[in-house]
Design a protein around this nucleic acid. Structure first.
Lengths: 250, 250
DNA sequence: TGGGATTTGTTCGTATGTATT
DNA sequence: GAATACATACGAACAAATCCC
């Protein structure tokens, strides 16, 4: 609720976007000292930011180990999508119930943004905007808690896409989002929910159907299929933040 | 997810229960030093615990002010209940879909616990157990994220009850919970959802219908109805933790 | 409206516990 | 498997902001 402080909120936003846009792949280390230097703030506030992101499921921060961007298991990923489908259904219901004429224009404007980002070839930004479309819907539900939960699962879905999914296809999402807007304009809750569920089904499919890629993260499953040890497939390597002299940000 | 540390988790649990059982009324100050002394841990970990509770909506921790137990507005309270109704509906669906015979016995056992606590006259414990009944259902949904969200809103509902509600009536909740268990055993989702919605409607009514009490926390509304200043109705007094020499816990 | 007391935010040094070699 | 390097946890001390009288 009440922001712990603007600076903490700033760091959260920056990290959140970096994670969502896949600039910080799952498993990336996030040492407190380094983040503090980057954001010019004390570890006290860095910890607050990391705690916040941990509560959102974007960061793993075990007891005495350095925090990392989260690496949800395939099962957790499915659970996140399951909750997301439930929340989005209710969001559609509420948005239609509280529909205002300006909603249509706002959503259309957003989809146009997605479209231009897509045409500009910026896959990261268009992926982020695709998520933000749903968060805007959450906002329009008029329920701040629902909006928060939806924002959380949408972010986590982006993370999951980074882990298991094939590259984001802005093409599809723009088209599907237009269909959702049209369905909402119709003010028929059941019909709009059907469109939304169809869309989410496709998103989940894009995120989780690619059986070939997730396996590399499920060591047990890999070892049961291949007798020989892993020879370090490139994608399994953890990308580290570049080292940086502490205090240089002084 | 991964516990920040057992000690932090312990402090969280203790504070959570104290808040839920209304031992720490909304608005109670929670100074870091004092909590650290009580729980024999450094401010570092106390802050982690407070951050966690803040993310759960149980604690308010504005920038440079001392943390307090949360005082949600009436509007926020309604939003929490709205989300709760949505989540519980989905929980019922999932629990029925994944029903196992032992669920019935487990739930019945829990209701019996509620009953004995009620007969023992321990209103605080029976209020907590009433909440935990729903959290157990969340557990049975098999979706850990859903369980987390449900646990959060149930806790917040307890807080809201402390703020605005009339004293918890264990009598009703035991009876209503029995009805829910019976409906779940029937394995008819729509019927069970109807029973659950009925129950939640009553809970919300008990929590928010009592217009006389909430007003004291909505200063504007009070002043618009009464010209004379408040003369400190007993219930509006904030109970403080007893002062305590720091370091005494050494 | 001011002034003292309290409490958070910050930094540093040290210790302890993980990771890595 | 042991030793080294590294990062978090802790305590104290200080400054700054806030609260309360």
């Amino acid at each position: 609720m009440s922001k712990k402080s603007t600076r903490v909120e700033f760091a959260c936003q920056a990290l959140r976007r970096a994670i969502i846009e896949q600039a910080l792949p799952p498993g990336t280390k996030l040492p407190e000292d380094e983040l503090g230097a980057r954001f010019a703030m004390s570890r006290t506030l860095v910890r607050a930011a990391l705690a916040q992101l941990q509560s959102e499921g974007l960061v793993d921060a075990p007891p005495r180990r350095t925090a990392t961007t989260a690496k949800p298991t395939l099962e957790e990923a499915r659970e996140v999508f399951e909750v997301r489908r439930m929340l989005e259904r209710d969001v559609v219901r509420l948005v239609i119930a509280r529909w205002k004429p300006e909603f249509g224009a706002e959503l259309e404007g957003h989809v146009r943004e997605e479209e231009t980002a897509h045409k500009a070839g910026d896959a990261r930004v268009s992926g982020r905007l695709a998520g933000e479309f749903h968060v805007r819907l959450g906002q329009m539900s008029g329920n701040r808690l629902l909006r928060r939960y939806l924002g959380e699962v949408v972010s986590r879905c982006s993370l999951i896409l980074a882990l298991y999914g094939r590259p984001h296809s802005a093409d599809c999402s723009v088209k599907e989002h237009r269909e959702i807007v049209a369905a909402l304009r119709g003010r028929n809750a059941d019909a709009a929910i059907a469109v939304m569920e169809h869309h989410l089904g496709l998103v989940e499919h894009r995120a989780l159907s690619d059986r070939g890629r997730d396996a590399q993260f499920d060591l047990g499953a890999v070892l049961s299929r291949y007798a020989e040890p892993l020879d370090g497939g490139g994608a399994s390597k953890v990308t580290r933040l570049p080292r940086r002299k502490l205090g240089a940000a002084k």
